[in-house]
Amino acid sequence: MSLHRADGIVLRTQKLGEADRIITILTREHGRVRLVAKGVRRTSSKFGARLEPFAHVDFQVFSRRHQPLGNRALDLITQAETIAPYGERIVNDYSRYTSGTAMLETAERLTDAEGEPAVQQYLLLLGGLRALTSGEHAPGLVLDAFILRSLAVAGYAPSFYDCAQCGAEPTQDAPWRFFAVAAGGVVCPNCKPPACAVPQRPTLDLLGALLAGEWRTADASEERHRREGSGLVAAYLQWHVERGLRSLKLVER
């Protein structure tokens, strides 16, 4: 029997039994873990409100066996303290809420193995939630930037300039516009598969800016390019995570 302490972001909560919840948390040191919080659905719960999705919490786990945290599904959370209640600032705006939920689901899906450290994903999600709550950028752009960078961290970085297949570079005045999801992004005319999307060049520039974190370019983009870009991002993500993300189609742009 032992007690561990960790901090992380609550990704999802599921009802368990009469008044308990299973809490999925992306922790800084142990990656994604699933833990049980007893009695948190009761109004008398002392920490139920702290374990809501989006919350950044410092928590204590009671485990019954001497194993590293996260190797079992049902260790118990015994205490939780709020580090930053992002949920409060997200839930008051519906488009922030839907974008934020899609970010949580993306983070959950891209951290496949439970208990396996995923520091970069954790830091990325933390940054994403901060950007979302600060309100400096459109929620849809924050979501797309988060998805693209999460994919890059997971090893699926798309290419928006060089050919994703052969690595050839286009000439400065005539960049390529063929976008093949299966190939990994933009492809040159030689590598182009029979069916591929041909988005507008400003859309590909926007996506490149989102991946690189050039917010000035992204914020100045037009609505039509954002819409087209989010479609490509969604297609690219769904291709790599295999099963579709449920929250993505409910995102309000």
Partner: peptide, 14 residues
Amino acid sequence: LPVGGDLEYADEVT
């Protein structure tokens, strides 16, 4: 705050 509770145990959000 829930009726019959202690203020010190209330979480920040509530």
